[in-house]
Design a protein around this nucleic acid. Sequence first.
DNA 1: ACACTAACCTGCAAGC
DNA 2: TGCTTGCAGGTTAGTG
Length: 268
Amino acid sequence: MPELPEVETTLRGVTPWLKGAKIAAIAVRQPSLRWPVTPGIEHQVAGQTIVDLSRRAKYLCIHLQRGSMLIHLGMSGSLRIVSAGDEWRKHDHIELQLTSGRSLRYHDPRRFGSWLWSEQAHWQLQNLGPEPLTEYFDGEHLYALSRGRKVAVKPFVMTNAIVVGVGNIYASEALFMTGIRPDRSAGRIALARYQQLATNIKSVLTRAIEQGGTTLRDFVNSSGAPGYFQQQLLVYGRAGQNCLVCHTTLREQRLGQRSSVYCIECQR
DNA sequence: ACACTAACCTGCAAGC
DNA sequence: TGCTTGCAGGTTAGTG
């Protein structure tokens, strides 16, 4: 669920229900997440109006009249709109209750996500690289920051200080699309290839967001259907299967504790 | 500054 | 069937 396109899809799905709404209360059943849910958050947000919502990296931000709530979905988190009185499912940890009778429910089996409130800027948003879908991210940026770096290119582009929002799936896909082996040293890739890589990162993220529309309704309706983009993955999750371009058996290796699938013929 | 590892936690699938 | 092992969309903290 929680790739940048999923977070963006979630944002678009819940915004119409939340923007301008007034918070009646927040119920925290399980405060033990990646970081403890901000102590006293109940008293801080109750009665406030939601001014706006936004996304930065994979964080979702709910802006209040005073302060903001910063939500991360971790590896297994999701948000959905429920009606008052809807039964709680296992791993539903937090409910943001609105005066409208609707609520935003936070669900996260592995509890790697977070839900924080702060009156000040959140430190988690410090030192983040550019958004991949803006003009501030391009091949020149990757090229400049990679000079002298020996780290493999895949963990390099997955580093939030370099560029945000490129997770294991889309890093794998973009590297395949560009024909770059995931274990190639980041500092030994030419500018032209980084320009192609940046273009492909934008392309794959954009396409995934476009198809998030299907997932969007799932979130709102809480039907739990799987993501639609999954059907178009070229290498991620396909180790041992044939490359869709040259039919060579796709290989898998671990880089930075992440499985990386690639084609030894198409990627150099 | 950089490269790399362990850790957080639950669920699920594969292997024995 | 039941137990063990390893892996999963992320990020930080700690080690050299």
